[in-house]
């Protein structure tokens, strides 16, 4: 059972469209597997839309609102409407088709939200494999991280944040075991050492390199950059 959910503020930011694509995708992957958060998202969407289009709310943004609204150039309306309605074409929604992704002979169904994102080449270090998701969000890096059975990420912490959403398989750390859909947001206060006995595929988002906390950190430095 999913135990780790996005915080309320994150869900709010998601519904508002204010989060970067990477974090939005993380919430979408989680919500696809979590009916509780799906419910909360649709509830918040209704509330926000209601508030957005209420005259009272809208008035807050513009003092001279009522006057302005009456004075909208009718020609502008006519032209704008004509531009839209000159074609009677309608949008056809294509049915969703499953897409798979393979890491070291393990086949996974790719979450729908990632279908149209561009994946970089897979890089491997030991039992870890990573494919960068090319979203071009500056310091925010998104990846698919695959851990083969028995693999682990050395104990580390983060200078920024690290989001992990488990897509398939399992892993565990000192907090316990995680299941697909778990949404794990960590910062530098939370050193952790995920181990995957049976292997797993994760969606990860980080905004800074990882910082290893144990003795052989110098040797592991390249892995810190690798995972970020």
């Amino acid at each position: 059972m999913i135990k780790h959910h996005p915080k309320f503020q994150l869900i709010q930011g998601f519904v508002n469209g204010e989060l970067p694509a990477s974090l939005s995708a993380g919430i979408a992957i989680h919500a696809d597997l979590c009916s509780e958060c799906r419910q909360q998202i649709s509830l918040l969407t209704e509330q926000l839309s209601y508030a957005s289009f209420e005259e009272v709310t809208v008035d807050k943004y513009s003092v001279s609102d009522s006057g302005k609204q009456d004075n909208v150039n009718p020609l502008y309306f006519e032209q704008a409407i004509a531009a839209i309605t000159k074609s009677n074409d309608i949008d056809i929604i294509e049915p969703k088709i499953e897409k798979n992704i393979i890491f070291k002979n393990h086949v996974y169904s790719l979450p729908f939200v990632l279908h149209n994102m561009v994946l970089g080449k897979t890089a491997n270090i030991g039992k870890l494999a990573r494919a960068r998701i090319q979203l071009d969000e500056n310091e925010i890096h998104s990846s698919l991280l695959h851990i083969e059975p028995g693999g682990s990420v050395p104990e580390h912490t983060h200078n920024g944040f690290e989001l992990t959403v488990l897509i398939a398989g399992q892993f565990s750390d000192k907090e316990g075991e995680y299941v697909p859909g778990d949404f794990i947001m960590l910062d530098k206060k939370h050193p952790h050492h995920p181990v995957s006995e049976k292997g797993c595929l994760c969606f990860t988002v980080a905004n800074d390199s990882l910082h290893f906390t144990q003795g052989i950190s110098k040797i592991l430095n390249p892995i810190g950059a690798f995972i970020y």
């Binding site: 979408a28 919500a31 994102m117």
Partner: peptide, 15 residues
């Protein structure tokens, strides 16, 4: 991000 992708329909269609 200077990206022309339209990800929004994928992001929100799920949820």
């Amino acid at each position: 991000s200077n990206r022309e992708d339209t990800l929004s329909d994928d992001i929100w269609s799920l949820a």
